[in-house]
Design a protein around this nucleic acid. Structure first.
Length: 495
RNA sequence: GGCCCUAUCGUCUAGCCUGGUCCAGGACGCGUGCUUUUCAAGCAUAAAACCCGGGUUCAAAUCCCGGUAGGGCCA
């Protein structure tokens, strides 16, 4: 067995463009990227589009877009130097054909003429007998004559690989020694014909041709590994080093799926998760530096990463934790940057119309809202009331504690009066003025003196129309005198 | 069904290799308190776990064996 490990570290991810780029692809990409950068190696992106029917260019484009968004850069692959080949399988068919012919001529694989129905009935039979279903090797030893005859009479055929009946052991960087009994597998179909290789065959060839040194991929591929190793041996290839990453799981511990939440990277992108937050979160799903540090930039991850510290067990993709990390990164963002990021969401919601609001004011809005944001999209709900002319709300919301209706009105009238008399419309002055009259208001009404809610809650609701919002001072400051007074008077009229 | 992988608070995990410092540490979430007009943020604080059963040992989360459970792959 050749286990010549390549000196140069080269890793890859090999997504199929058959649907929206999956979050699992992002995680695998991240770990490959970290491993490559950590070891001064190369990270290769290969698009596996052997499945011609289901592969589409738009999905390839999406993979590229989302990986770029995440900041995971590949060193070789599509779009590097404007070239797409040699990393697109559909453009490499002659290579697969060459190896397929080699295997065939060396009798390491063979044409199989068994029909679907025949195989299916055998399978059922094996199942009912309680035996593991596997191909019985019927076409394994057909004579050259028989083969030629069947081919010339255009009988439908596939190409099978002779799977040796032996034990396959390999070292997995994460799991240690793993052992399989290949004999249980049965001869596997590696191509429909010379021009149509199947996944298991194409990966093996590509990984060799691209001189991949380490194959870091999801655990779902663990049981595919022995047959790939056998194929490598048959073709005289070296054996790359394997590392199988723990899976990302649904809440019920099954493999992450659409049914139970978002699985497309673009879903997270669109909802306003920050790439750095998603990266940080995903890295910590299955990896831990062994310290109590939890916030890592991509660059820091590269520094600290080591594949030995990767966990073996699958990890539940806990959105609550992602939200926390995302909120953390949002709060850390410089305000100009954060504003820039929020603008598309406000525009999309029809709240922000170009030129209608000054940049400075917009930044203030984002600033007072950001502690409540878990994701960028939240800004719409959080700050909508700043952008509209009239706020709609139930008048019962104006009531603080056990306030009487008349008192709510008086509170609002007092706010109106106090603010109307205010000379400079500045946040601190607004606050001082209102705080200055709050105590007296409570005394007159017989409310506990220090509970300013009796004055401020009705005002805050009048301004925001919301149960939760920034303080009335912050809102007044941003809204400006005219709008503030208008909203307060609007509330009075409701009562 | 067969094969393989996995197993520490509800969740992500530290500790396990090199047994004692672990009546198990951190974080999210949840509870409480402080701050406070609200919510959020911030700060403080509580509750919360070694899958089970044997063994080895003076001593086991840590080593060994056997179960159990969950997951993946194959079809």
């Amino acid at each position: 067995m050749k286990t010549t490990v390549k000196k140069e570290i080269r890793v890859r991810i090999a997504p199929s463009p058959t649907g929206s780029a999956h979050i699992g692809t992002a995680r695998t990409a991240l770990f490959n990227y970290l491993f490559a950068k950590k070891n001064k190696g190369k990270f290769v992106l290969r698009i596996e589009d052997t499945d011609k029917e289901r592969s589409e260019q738009k999905w390839t484009d999406e993979i590229l877009t989302e990986l770029r968004w995440l900041g995971i850069k590949w060193d070789e692959g599509p779009d590097i130097g404007g070239k797409f080949s040699p990393y697109k399988q559909t453009q490499r068919m002659d290579i697969y054909k060459k190896y397929l012919e080699k295997l065939l001529s060396e009798k390491k694989s063979y044409y199989c003429f068994c029909s679907e129905e025949e195989l299916e009935s055998k399978r059922q039979d094996q199942l009912t007998r309680g035996v593991a279903p596997k191909y019985d090797g019927k076409c394994r030893n057909l004579s050259e004559k028989e083969i030629q005859k069947k081919i010339s009479s255009k009988e439908k055929a596939v190409i099978r690989f002779k799977v040796a009946d032996k034990k396959i052991r390999f070292l997995d960087l994460i799991r240690g020694m793993v052992e399989f009994n290949a004999g249980l597998l049965g001869d596997v179909v590696i191509a429909k014909d010379l021009g149509t290789p199947l996944y298991h065959f194409a990966v093996v060839v590509d990984d060799f041709e691209m001189q991949i040194s380490h194959i870091i991929r999801g655990e779902e591929h663990l049981s595919n590994t022995p047959r790939q190793i056998l194929l490598q041996e048959a073709l005289g290839f070296y054996q790359p080093v394997y590392a199988h990453l723990p899976l990302m799981l649904n809440m019920d511990k099954s493999k992450m799926s659409k049914r139970q939440g978002d699985v497309a990277i673009s879903d997270y992108h669109k909802n306003g998760y920050l790439p750095e937050a998603l990266i940080n979160f995903m890295a910590l799903l299955g990896w831990n530096p062994g310290t109590e540090k939890e916030i890592f930039s991509l660059a820091k991850l590269v520094k600290e990463f080591s594949i030995e510290k990767v966990q073996k067990a699958g990890a539940i993709f806990n959105v609550q934790r992602l939200d926390f990390i995302n909120g953390f990164y949002i709060r850390e963002k410089p305000i100009e940057k954060l504003t820039e990021l929020c603008i598309p969401y406000l525009k999309e919601a029809g709240l922000l119309i170009a030129g209608q609001i000054s940049e400075n004011k917009l930044e203030k809005i984002i600033e007072v809202s950001k502690t409540r944001m878990k994701k960028l999209f939240d800004i719409v709900e959080l700050s909508g009331f700043f952008f509209v002319d009239k706020v709609a709300y139930d008048k019962n919301l104006l009531k603080w504690d056990d306030m009487k209706d008349g008192d709510i009105k008086d509170a609002l009238l007092l706010c109106d009066k106090t603010l109307s008399e205010l000379k400079d419309w500045e946040i601190k002055k607004i606050e001082w003025a209102l705080m200055g009259v709050a105590g007296e208001f409570n005394r007159q009404k017989g409310y506990p003196e220090k509970n300013r809610g009796f004055l401020l809650w009705p005002m805050r609701v009048a301004l925001s129309g919301k149960q939760f919002s920034p303080s009335p001072f912050e809102i007044s400051d941003i809204l400006g005198r005219e709008k503030t007074l208008k909203r307060i008077r609007g509330a009075v009229e409701k009562l």
